[in-house]
Design a protein around this nucleic acid. Structure first.
Lengths: 147, 147
DNA sequence: AGAGAAATGAGAATGGTTCTCATTCGCTTT
DNA sequence: AAAGCGAATGAGAACCATTCTCATTTCTCT
């Protein structure tokens, strides 16, 4: 199965299904996120689009994509928002943040380990009477480059 | 072992070791965090101290306590900073955030499960050449009250 | 070509957090 | 007890990321 344009196509379909337009700005953001090694901030994206999208429009683009569940937003360790493609487009994964350089990158946790995480999470939910809908696991440490 | 004032005493000692004063504002914050069921925001703390500490002082107090590693700060799902006692004072734990009411509470993951998490985290670090220093596991779901 | 809905761009406004600076506090030394 | 002095405080300004407003522009469908 071809993967190069899957996210782009899926995003277009999703937006069209909601009768929204797949405009150049929306397309650019999806394209950039598709090829990024980790979640990007609004500031990162402004740089990536080379200023072609004004800030106010970029934020609006991001919130449209978030509302349509093409991307997800979450705060990085400093509280600034970072965005990445939703998991139905990229698969489930976690993050590791280098405490030296600050970079956050994706970690596609191997299936065997992810299964173990799922079991733990489910068990915790059971023990604490909490109906678990999802989880986030973030590793903090030092990346290979910074060593 | 008495636990009621352990955090307070430990915090005092830590600050004094750094030749800083254990002032009323600093004491209040530690006290409040010690008795809170989960991480608190600056706004929460202002309410908890009943306005006795002005905002600018509260933030300064928080950063002093953070710098001296008595508390830790991290962003909640909306990006606003939340604070809790450092793990050397409370023990390792995780969080669960209710996607209905937004409350975040502590989850003292049972030792057996935590061991499993540790193993997974270590294994991921090994596989991805990442020197793991710590981890955060956040559950999202619906709490008992909201069901 | 024209109408109407959707999207855009510029800038103002907001909210959380940090900074500045003059004042006050609390030890320590007389 | 008073002076000296660094630490801490309080008020408000400043900052920065993000959101909002609104007039203008662009699509899409006739």
């Amino acid at each position: 199965m071809g993967q190069r344009n899957d996210a782009l196509t899926a995003a277009r379909r999703r937006l069209e299904a909601l009768q929204m337009r797949f405009t150049p700005a929306r397309r650019s953001v999806v394209e950039i996120l598709e090829t990024s090694p980790g979640p990007q901030s609004a500031a990162d994206l402004i740089v990536a689009v080379e200023g072609a999208v004004p800030i106010s429009s970029l934020y609006r683009t991001l919130s449209v994509l978030e509302d349509s569940e093409v991307i997800v937003r979450f705060p990085d360790p400093n509280g600034v928002a970072r965005y990445e493609l939703a998991e139905w487009l990229t698969g489930h994964h976690h993050h590791m943040t280098c405490i030296v350089c600050g970079a956050t990158s994706d970690v596609p946790v191997p299936k065997d380990l992810e299964t173990a995480v799922d079991n733990i999470v489910a068990e915790v939910g059971r023990r604490f009477d909490f109906q678990v809908a999802g989880h986030r696991l973030d590793l903090q440490g030092v990346c290979a480059q910074c060593r």
